[in-house]
Design a protein around this nucleic acid. Structure first.
Lengths: 202, 202
DNA sequence: TTATATATTGAATCTATATTCAATATATAA
DNA sequence: TTATATATTGAATATAGATTCAATATATAA
């Protein structure tokens, strides 16, 4: 007999992972339509043909990655919501960690860049649009919840919590975009500056 | 004899303008590589072939439009810098007018979306990259100047003016992106919330 | 060792679309 | 009217690159 199913699965998992990593690298830098299937295959260290044993098309890889990307942000948001502490502690923690992550690792910024590109194009495949429609709003809702709780506590400024949440994410996305798309981006602002928008003065 | 040179020029100007308008519409929504030359021609109401009497390639239209787009922002920034008033008045005026424009007309947001896409892709033609390298930084410098003057006046908070300027544009870009890429985006935040980041409390 | 299942290869095909070009339409100066 | 310059058309061409597929490599159970 040949390899066991378990062994084949391990091989396929490894190959699938390198395809996904390679594809995220390329898509996040060049977008769906400027990325060549050959780019991805080469970067993953496999032949073009093999890619089609894992995904039926270039678009299918994209859909998969968009879903992953949104899930990551949702997961992090939920984790923030469910942690102990006041609204101020949560927002400050979020800002501090995100700004730090942007500078230290490329993960957050890469993911953010990838999603930004998808969101900015109406040419994305309908399946991608569907995932975006279902999931993109969730992190906005979660931050709005946290801010609403802060208004109850009396710490957060007045105003529609959802609008404040929009402002929160606009800052994150704006800074992240700035940071990834610039040669030498300089420093990021202190998190307290951003935080000060959302909270009353003592 | 046939038409005068002046008359031909008028015809060509009109055609060129509709090509540029159509191309900006398409590029800003779908990006360079997902936009088909046929899309642009159709939307401009001309035949594909004619496009090549005005531009040597799809990329050339793109370069032209990127330059226009950056020039518009630079022009507005310079105008702000040179107006009378304190730093606070200028920044407040800028925030107020931009937020209003985002909601009222599509011009600013369309331009912003277009530039965001270009900036987020390393697949853009080298000529576009060149224009971006030359011009993208200027609005950041101008806002930094204004904020530095505000620090002299004592109204603007401490910190590297260029970093504050980054934060200013991150807010503008983040909100603009939010607003154009959402079906029913809801309200934009009050400009004073953003402004409060940059100025000391009375 | 060997048989076998499946992971992998890369050249061949097929298609979409950017670009070219020969022919046509148009408008006005004479 | 007519001659003419040039704006315009759209079908033909060329090509890049997505997808397919027949052949090969690999690894292990027997």
């Amino acid at each position: 007999m040949a390899r066991t199913e378990e062994q084949n699965e391990k091989i396929r998992d490894a190959t699938r992972t390198s395809i996904k990593n390679a594809a995220l690298d390329k898509f996040s830098m060049k977008g769906l339509y400027a990325t060549r299937i050959q780019d991805i295959a080469e970067s993953a260290g496999i032949a073009q043909g093999l890619l089609y044993h894992y995904y039926p098309s270039k678009e299918a890889i994209y859909v998969d990655l968009i879903d992953d990307g949104l899930e990551k942000i949702i997961e992090a948001s939920l984790c923030l919501r469910d942690m102990d502490g006041t609204a101020k502690e949560k927002i400050d923690f979020a800002l501090k960690s995100i700004l730090q992550t942007i500078q230290i690792s490329s993960n957050f910024a890469q993911n953010s860049r990838f999603i930004t590109q998808a969101v900015n194009s109406t040419a994305i495949p309908p399946e991608v649009q569907k995932v975006l429609d279902e999931k993109r709003d969730i992190p906005y809702q979660i931050i709005a919840e946290i801010l609403a709780a802060g208004q109850e506590e009396g710490s957060v400024v007045d105003g529609d919590p959802r609008t404040l949440s929009t402002l929160f994410w606009a800052n994150i996305n704006g800074l992240s975009a700035y940071f990834t798309t610039w040669k030498n981006p300089g420093e990021l602002p202190d998190y307290r500056l951003i935080s000060s928008m959302f909270f009353r003065r003592e």
